Computed example of a mutant assay.
Amino acid sequence: MTDIEFLKYPIGKFQFDPNSDEHSLQKAIETIKSLPEHLMETVKYLSEPQLDTPYRPGGWTVRQVIHHVGDSHMNALIRFKLALTEDNPTIKPYDEAAWAKLSDYSFEIELSLALIRLIHAKWVAILEHMTEADFQRTYFHPESQKAQTLLEVAHMYAWHSQHHLSHIQQLMIRENWTTPTP
């Protein structure tokens, strides 16, 4: 299937259930926790030309996706800390497409894989010690003009983790890139 909507959203668009329960939250935290390992395992045998292959026509390369996840999740960790220490802070949006054109997005992926591993270790340490009240804390996102609870944001970044991991995995399937055994 090469439908552009599927290529953009291989696991579907993010939808948050405001009535999510403790089980769905724990599943979201586990997804965030396991992303670094899954991402490293997925890309560890890719060649340089494969890393520089876009996951869809007009889309980012695998390399850019990995660097984007590092930057995006770094921002997420900072936003969590702001919301946990301030009353409904206004976060700073950033132009993801412009960031993807910066020179560091051409660097080797090991830098961002290490960054993702470290960010997720810190982030999960916070997530696993948050109370129910902590997950109800909010930040204000000026692009959407709404306050978002950290409960919603945790679910959104679990989706974001799977979303970009799936971009890479689906490309590998379409291109029939096999993973060699060490």
Results as ranks from 00 to 15, higher is better:
Arg79Phe: 01
Arg56Thr: 08
Thr90Asp: 01
Pro93Val: 01
Asp87Gln: 08
Ala100Pro: 04
Trp60Val: 01
Ala100Phe: 03
Glu86Thr: 07
His73Lys: 13
Asp71Phe: 07
Pro57Val: 14
Arg79Gln: 07
Met74Arg: 15
Gly59Leu: 03
Ile66His: 00
Leu111Ile: 12
Ala98Glu: 10
Thr53Tyr: 10
Tyr55Asn: 08
Gly59Val: 02
Lys101Arg: 12
Ser47Asp: 11
Val62Ile: 15
Arg56Ile: 12
Phe80Lys: 09
Gly70Tyr: 15
Ser106Val: 04
Lys92Gln: 13
Leu46Met: 13
Pro54Arg: 08
Glu110Leu: 09
Glu86Asn: 13
Pro49Ser: 12
Phe80Ser: 04
Asp52His: 10
Gly58Ile: 10
Gly70Asp: 14
Pro89His: 08
Thr85Ile: 06
Trp60Asn: 01
Ala76Pro: 07
His67Asn: 02
Asp104Trp: 12
Met74Leu: 13
Arg63Lys: 07
Gly59Met: 01
His73Ile: 03
Ile66Phe: 06
Ala100Gln: 09
Lys101Cys: 05
Pro54Cys: 10
Arg79Asp: 06
Ile91His: 06
Asp104Phe: 11
Ala83His: 06
Glu108Cys: 03
Ser112Ala: 15
Ser47Asn: 09
Asn75Ile: 05
Ile66Val: 15
Lys92Phe: 00
Leu102Ala: 08
Asp52Pro: 02
Leu84Arg: 14
Ala97Trp: 02
Glu108Arg: 08
Val69Glu: 04
Arg79Cys: 07
Val69Ala: 03
His68Leu: 00
Ser112Trp: 08
Thr61Arg: 04
Lys92Ile: 03
Leu111Cys: 03
Glu110Val: 01
Ile66Ala: 02
Gln50Lys: 11
Tyr94Pro: 08
Leu77Met: 08
His67Phe: 00
Leu111Lys: 03
Lys101Met: 11
Asn75Trp: 00
Gly59Tyr: 06
Trp60Gln: 06
Gly70Ile: 07
Gln50Ile: 09
Asp104Glu: 14
His67Trp: 05
Ser112Gln: 00
Thr61Tyr: 03
Pro54Thr: 12
Glu96Asp: 10
Asp52Phe: 01
